[in-house]
Amino acid sequence: MACPVRRNDGTQDADQLGDETGMLYGEYLMLDKVLGAQRLLSEQNNKPVHDEHLFIVTHQAYELWFKQIIFELDSVRNIFSEVLEESQTLEILKRLNRIVLILKVLVDQVMILETMTPLDFMDFRNYLKPASGFQSLQFRLLENKLGLKTENRVKSNMNYAKVFGSDEEALNRIELSESQPSLALLVERWLERTPGLEVEGFNFWGKYEKAVNMLLEEQKQIALNEPNESVKRYRLNDLENRREVYESIFQPEIHQALLNRGERRFSHKALQGAILVTFYRDEPRFSQPHQILNLLMDIDSLITKWRYNHVLMVQRMIGSSQLGTGGSSGYQYLRATLSDRYKVFVDLFNLSTFLIPRSHIPKLTSDVRSKLWHR
């Protein structure tokens, strides 16, 4: 966007504007409000602290980017909420990739805050109380819309009722974000419809189980022929462990038990679909779905990296024992959010557990390829 700034001498840009109607750059972006929104409490207390300005601008930038992520996320959820047409997957890819790039900016943005030393932060930290990042409504909405469930959150002395108790609109928005289908749920439903899972069709799952059993039997024979007894025992034990891992996906009741314990998130049918897409990602029909799964993992990874960088920064600024300005346990609470329970798409990260060599992947017949292509 061109910047139509009028020069003091009135000889160049002003002439180019002519009599055109419309808004100028600053008016269009409402810069008077945006650039005037930095209120330094240290200045109001007649003790101006230089780095408070950086702290405010950085967090305002975070909130603006959160707003854009939510905007993109809502649009992706709207597309997924209907039966997805193949022509729409390119738009999903574009918008998910945009979210990924924004998150990369947010991860790197922590480094700018780290130019502030702990003593610099201490000069104005008391002015922040009781403000806290826990009170970021947009970040909570983002987590809910992605699919982070309440039962997977770390228990804390802070809660929505306490933080937003007097803000009825905020509580309503949180409740709505928890009641509407999350991206994780919509992706799960989409994967459950993966073509090729039908028993009366290609029956990928039956062929895959047969291929796994064949592979394990081949490796068992190799292990039994091992002359070194200790190596033989090691290989046989490893094979038994791997067999149990595969059984956890071939036996629906075992998968359900893992779901109940929170160790898995997708339904059994959705996990089957994700494995099928991963195996046949080079097929035209599954190329873009595979890219979507990768971008979902990128989103999870980058949010985890952002949490990690934030935890390190907090430890650097206030140590491991001080309470947060909002009353949380500070570093200890934030460190607890780094576990897999905060990964929305943890099942996608674990797909590699169930891979088999390309030579054992069931081959698609020309008839099956034709049906997949014309669906």
Rank of each mutant, 00 (worst) to 15 (best):
T325Y: 08
R6H: 14
N309V: 09
N237Y: 13
N294M: 06
H255N: 00
S42N: 06
M317E: 03
K33V: 09
Q16V: 14
E198K: 05
L113S: 02
D340C: 11
D340V: 09
L29A: 02
H360D: 03
E178K: 00
L17I: 03
M23W: 10
V314Q: 05
Q138N: 09
L186A: 14
G262K: 08
K67D: 13
H310N: 06
L215V: 11
R264H: 08
G319M: 12
K145D: 13
M111T: 15
L176P: 04
S179C: 12
Y62R: 08
D123G: 07
T89C: 09
R140F: 09
W65A: 06
T353K: 12
I174N: 07
L334I: 02
T58K: 11
E20R: 12
M116L: 12
Q38A: 02
K363W: 09
C3Y: 13
F204S: 02
D340Q: 09
T21Y: 09
I249R: 07
H290I: 06
L106W: 13
D74F: 05
L35G: 05
Y160F: 10
K145Q: 15
T115G: 08
D19R: 09
Q251M: 11
E151Y: 07
E63F: 10
A223H: 05
E198I: 07
K129S: 04
Y208S: 02
L137G: 04
L17R: 05
G196A: 04
L215D: 14
I79L: 13
R261E: 00
L295Y: 01
K371E: 12
I303V: 04
Q332G: 05
F250T: 01
D108V: 01
I112M: 14
M313A: 07
T117G: 10
E226P: 04
Y127G: 06
I254A: 04
C3H: 14
S267A: 06
I292T: 10
H268Y: 11
E82R: 13
S156K: 10
T115R: 03
V212Q: 08
S166K: 14
H360S: 07
Q291S: 02
D13N: 15
Y234P: 00
R98S: 13
V187A: 05
W190V: 00
V34Y: 10
K67A: 11
Y208Q: 01
I318Y: 01
L258K: 06
Q219M: 11
Y28E: 14
G133E: 00
E168Q: 15
R193G: 13
D51V: 01
L96T: 12
I174F: 13
T89Y: 04
Q180D: 12
Q138Y: 06
